[in-house]
Design a protein around this nucleic acid. Structure first.
Lengths: 325, 325
DNA sequence: TATCAGAATTTGATCGTTCAAGACCCAGGA
DNA sequence: TCCTGGGTCTTGAACGATCAAATTCTGATA
């Protein structure tokens, strides 16, 4: 089976190479009848555009890169996993492919950008886990590399397009749910101030609960969460319900309540496998949609039809009610 | 900043294009002194080989593809996630990159192979979730496409190289652990016969426990697992410990025991986030190593220095002991 | 019928690399 | 002196697509 190139198709259809190329890339400049003839030839021969050749001329690879992170916590790891799946799907529909890379830190990641851009002509990047003073976005912006972040630019102006989930709305919804279930003293278990995501989740609870006293912080994890929850539940005016910044913390809270023999409603965040498994009510991020929107913004950027101002997308999460609240 | 090509480097080093190419690909044919001069030029200019151009000549892309599956169960999803991370790392070290794709079923996946091979000149594939009568491997083999499977060819001869985790050894280790803890009636909670992985996990338990009566099956999931565990625990000679084919089933078993007010040791499989979170003893697969070995086999195939017979790698899992056993 | 604009199609060059073949240099043997 | 041959380096062509410019076709108008 010989290799089928654009020339093979051209011969079969009785036209020139360029016409075949036009049928593929700018069909409207080709006469209807010719177009049909060429399309048939393409079909019969099973022709597929050779990306490498196309890329050499156009300088575009139809490849976008995403970093795959080590599943840190394990519990939260699946968030990225689901996002990745959604992104791969969305990219495929838009005619792009997703390439993975790993990186040890921001500097390492930037070095990888350089490598990927030079060697593979990557078209764009999707960044996750944005944080305060993120050096990656400025590096990419300075070089006019198209990119979108999943996560807003914390503490910085909106100089690029991003997609994020409205974390505050999530905890607010959780709090409202608890309020309408009759709870009046609703506490919050979160991370130390400073992380954008964590602060937003606290803010949503605060806005809906209207009180700021019943709040505790700890690093993420089941054990630390249990310890922090215990101190909260041992106060004089102990909460009857806890909104937590993560499923790990929520799990800790459940353990603490059980150990203290207390009845305490608990809501987690991220709707991870753990939540599903143990019946934990949790706030669920629309990851597939977030991924699709990221891809949407990217194709806008790549097709040059992007608005001059960066677009920002804020998606509402949803509350998945289970047994714990 | 002008684009740096092999010609730029050649000019700077005062040699021809081909010599630069030789320094990169076959350094031993270039005189020591020249080689050094060229290397310096490459360094100073920050030159990187353009993959698209190279690919056009050589027909090889230095890209390998892996399918990213939807996180079915949620609990088990993270297994693939961790494997992917390891594979991306290992591929990077070998000078390859990982590309993702999704597919709805075997036929769909095969169509994707065709597309990826034609359009992107993919060098190789890594298949996961192999199963009885898998059509994917024969399709690839018929076209001489290099590939490795993570998971052995169930019910078929070893016509290709594969890497797998010794599932039977995992459940055997779990059973031995329980035996040495004093348990004498150790049951097994698994999936219906027919899946290679599931059968192997049962087999390991059977071998170590020496009895086959105390076994029950159900589809994967917490609820079904709880139901099946209940029936086991309600028998006259009820087991005092249960080895399970997955963490989901194990979680179900724990719930069943609690509801029945029974004390029952439980061991899961895969050491997922759920196991870590709730202190479930579980069998852990060496996913990073499995990924690295897959990559190792692939590079052998790709460099043409593969042994004539397919290589098979069977890795031992390890038992992570926590509170439940 | 001749002319002309616009549509449709073709031609030649090019992207950056590697392959294949040829050129050059120098030491050693006839 | 001339030839041989291995080591080193250079030259032109090719991979398969698209760009830019040139050419041919078509149909309407004078």
């Amino acid at each position: 089976m010989q290799k089928v190139t654009i020339a093979t198709v051209a011969r079969r259809a009785g036209v020139s190479r360029q016409t075949v190329s036009n049928v593929i890339n700018t069909p409207d400049v080709v006469r209807e009848e010719t177009r049909e003839r060429v399309r048939e030839a393409i079909e019969e021969l099973g022709y597929r555009v050779n990306q490498a050749a196309r890329q050499m001329r156009t300088g575009r690879s139809r490849l976008i890169a995403v970093r795959i992170e080590p599943a840190r916590d394990g519990i939260n790891g699946s968030v990225l996993d689901r996002f990745l799946h959604g992104l791969t799907d969305a990219a495929g529909l838009a005619g792009y492919r997703v390439m993975l890379y790993t990186a040890g830190g921001d500097a390492d990641e930037i070095a990888t950008y350089d490598e990927l851009l030079n060697a593979y002509d990557l078209d764009a990047f999707v960044l996750t886990s944005t944080h305060h003073g993120d050096p990656r976005t400025s590096w990419l912006a300075a070089r006019d590399v198209p990119f979108v972040t999943f996560g807003r630019p914390w503490g910085a102006p909106d100089t690029h397009s991003w997609v994020d989930v409205d974390n505050a709305a999530g905890t607010a919804a959780a709090t409202s749910h608890l309020l309408s279930a009759g709870h009046r003293r609703i506490g919050f278990l979160g991370w130390p101030a400073g992380s954008g995501v964590g602060d937003a989740r606290r803010e949503g609870w605060h806005r809906a609960a209207g009180l700021s006293a019943l709040s505790a912080t700890s690093s993420d994890g089941v054990e630390p969460g249990a310890a922090a929850a215990k101190s909260l539940l041992s106060r004089p005016e102990a909460p009857t319900a806890l909104v937590c910044a993560s499923d790990s913390l929520a799990l800790g809270a459940l353990q603490a309540a059980r150990e203290l023999g207390r009845d305490c409603a608990v809501v987690g965040f991220d709707d991870t496998a753990v939540a599903q498994a143990i019946g934990l009510t949790s706030v669920s991020q629309p990851l597939a949609e977030a991924a699709a929107r990221c891809m949407g913004l990217l194709t806008e950027l790549l097709d040059g039809r992007a608005p001059s101002l960066p677009t920002t997308v804020l998606l509402p999460p949803s509350l998945v009610v289970r047994q714990t609240a």
